[in-house]
């Protein structure tokens, strides 16, 4: 086994120490810091980007919330305006109707009064005509006109019958 020849150990150990030592220092001072810094830079970049994305997402959510609040307020206001308008219109139409009804009541009352008067007038007229006709008929039959008080009594009695 060539591995067990002690004469060959010295040269191998010398070059192992040399190459491994130099490689270790190169890795320690040059290669590993370079790789590590690139990985760290990337991690920082990614976390920075994630933070920015998170910020934008929060801003978007705030904008959406503000929009929804504004929308809700606008809806509320529109509702109030509609309600107010409706109430005002109702009040106006109610007032109009009340006024109209009052006027109509007044007019119908006047008309009823006029009709009553006309009726009363017409009734007295009827009595007078009946008395005249009765007086004429009695005069034709007996030649003399009955007294006015008798006529009146007789007409009223007849009309009651």
């Amino acid at each position: 086994m060539p591995q067990l020849n002690p004469l060959d150990w010295g040269p191998q150990l010398v070059w192992l120490v040399l190459t491994f030592g130099i490689l270790y220092l190169l890795m320690l001072w040059v290669a590993l810091p370079r790789i590590g810094s690139v990985i760290e830079k990337r991690a920082a970049h990614i976390s920075g980007d994630l933070a920015t994305a998170e910020k934008f997402r929060r801003e978007t959510e705030e904008a959406i919330a503000a929009y929804e609040q504004a929308l809700a307020e606008a809806k509320q206001r529109a509702h109030t305006i509609v309600e107010e308008g409706r109430a005002r219109l109702k009040a106006e139409s109610d007032a109009e109707r009340a006024k109209l009804e009052k006027e109509l009541a007044v007019k119908s009352a006047e008309a009823e009064a006029r009709i009553e008067k006309a009726k009363a007038a017409a009734m007295t007229e009827v009595n007078a005509v009946a008395m005249d006709v009765a007086a004429d008929i009695v005069k034709q039959l007996i030649g003399t006109a009955p007294p006015k008080s008798d006529l009146e009594k007789a007409v009223i009695a007849a009309r009651k019958a």
């Binding site: 060959d8 040269p11 890795m27």
Partner: peptide
């Protein structure tokens, strides 16, 4: 007086160290 000869073993150690260094850089 110490045998520090450059052998085929030493050559491949140097090649390995050089390859790793060149690769990483």
């Amino acid at each position: 007086g110490f045998d520090a000869s450059f052998t085929n073993s030493g050559l491949f150690m140097v090649i390995a160290a050089a390859l790793i260094t060149l690769f990483t850089l």
